[in-house]
Simulated assay, not measured.
Amino acid sequence: MRLPSWLSQHLAALRALLVFTVLLGIAYPLLMVGVGRLPGLDNRADGSLVTVAGKQVGSRLIGQAFTDADGNPDPRYFQSRPSAAGDGYDPTATSASNLGPNDMVDTPDRKSLLTQVCARSLAIGELEGVDGSRPYCTADGVGAVLAVFHRDGLTGPVTRVVSVNQTGTPFVATYDGVTVESAKNGEDYQALGGVITPIRGDAPAEPAVPADAVTASASGLDPDISPAYAALQVPRIARERGLSEAAVRELVEDNTTGRALGFLGEPGVNVLELNLALDNK
């Protein structure tokens, strides 16, 4: 008895589903697990976990925080770059903040990317004993941004100016001859017609605090920092550890990797391996 065409088509589709389920849902994953168990690859497949005295202390491939009992940066250790993964360095929630350079205005429930960068730079400057100022940041570590109101909307004389990220004393007294007001909580000055205007200020064009020290990576779990950020931390580490700066710089160089294939990416310093080398020192 010949089956109806619609039934034969459904049976063919079911057979294809079963075949590909076995191949791609069972056989292929098992093959990849087997490849991951090959000598030389097994450590990477397990996440390049690092064990010290029988205790897992981290992974060479996943960034982590190095803090004291109160959650503050431990001054004896090199610090990683910031993380936007979950509540920070959460390998189950790897992600970026998805905030861009135009994210400059704070809201009641979230600090803008600019303010986050400004606050981090100021905090790192205090930790490392350097100038933490950056362009477009106020002295108190928020985004230096004004809402400028013009008589004719986007043009014409300035009639009102508000420092949108400050409820206290504005970072500048006047703008274009108009007194700058402090912001009011919950007020959306852009919706009211203000033109959002970042103010560069007099910070150096090349800040003392490197960019990777104040911005999270795309994964939020970058295990490396730039040689520049590592160099910034050398004096503090040497002081806290009772070592010479030359000895600490040598450890940094030993844990610095170059560009992939000699031209891809940038040199990096693995923070976990560097801190382990410090402990061994």
Rank of each mutant, 00 (worst) to 15 (best):
R2Y: 02
R2A: 00
R2F: 01
P4N: 14
W6P: 00
L7D: 06
Q9T: 15
H10R: 15
L14M: 14
R15P: 11
A16V: 06
L18D: 09
L18C: 11
V19S: 13
T21G: 13
P29Y: 07
L30Y: 01
L31G: 12
V33C: 00
G34Y: 09
G34W: 06
G34P: 07
L38N: 10
P39N: 05
D42M: 01
D42H: 07
G47R: 03
S48Q: 12
S48C: 05
S48R: 10
G54S: 10
K55H: 13
K55M: 12
V57E: 08
V57I: 15
G58C: 10
S59M: 04
R60K: 09
R60Q: 09
Q64L: 12
F66Q: 08
F66G: 08
T67S: 13
T67Q: 14
D68W: 11
A69C: 04
D70C: 04
G71P: 13
N72E: 14
D74M: 08
Y77R: 11
P82E: 05
Y89W: 14
D90W: 00
D90V: 05
P91R: 00
A93K: 14
T94G: 15
G100M: 12
N102W: 12
M104G: 00
M104I: 15
V105C: 01
D106Y: 01
D106L: 02
D109T: 12
L114G: 04
V117E: 06
V117N: 01
A119R: 13
A119F: 05
L122S: 10
G125S: 11
G125F: 04
E126S: 10
E126P: 00
L127H: 12
L127P: 04
G129N: 03
V130L: 05
D131W: 03
P135R: 13
P135L: 05
Y136H: 11
T138M: 03
T138S: 09
T138Q: 06
V142K: 10
G143Q: 04
A144R: 04
A144H: 06
A147V: 04
V148E: 01
V148Y: 01
G153T: 05
V158G: 07
T159A: 06
Q166A: 09
T167C: 00
P170V: 02
S182N: 09
A183K: 00
K184R: 11
E187W: 01
D188M: 03
A191L: 13
G194V: 05
G194M: 03
V195S: 04
I196H: 01
G201M: 05
P210I: 03
P210Q: 02
P210Y: 02
D212C: 08
D212W: 06
S217M: 07
A218N: 15
G220F: 07
D222A: 14
P223F: 09
D224A: 10
I225R: 01
A228E: 14
V234S: 10
A238H: 03
A238I: 04
R239N: 14
E240H: 12
S244Q: 08
E245C: 07
A246S: 11
A247L: 10
A247H: 12
R249S: 13
V252L: 06
T257S: 15
G258I: 02
G258R: 12
R259H: 11
A260H: 08
G262Y: 13
L264G: 01
L264V: 15
E266Q: 14
L272G: 01
N275C: 08
L278H: 08
L278E: 06
N280W: 09
N280I: 03
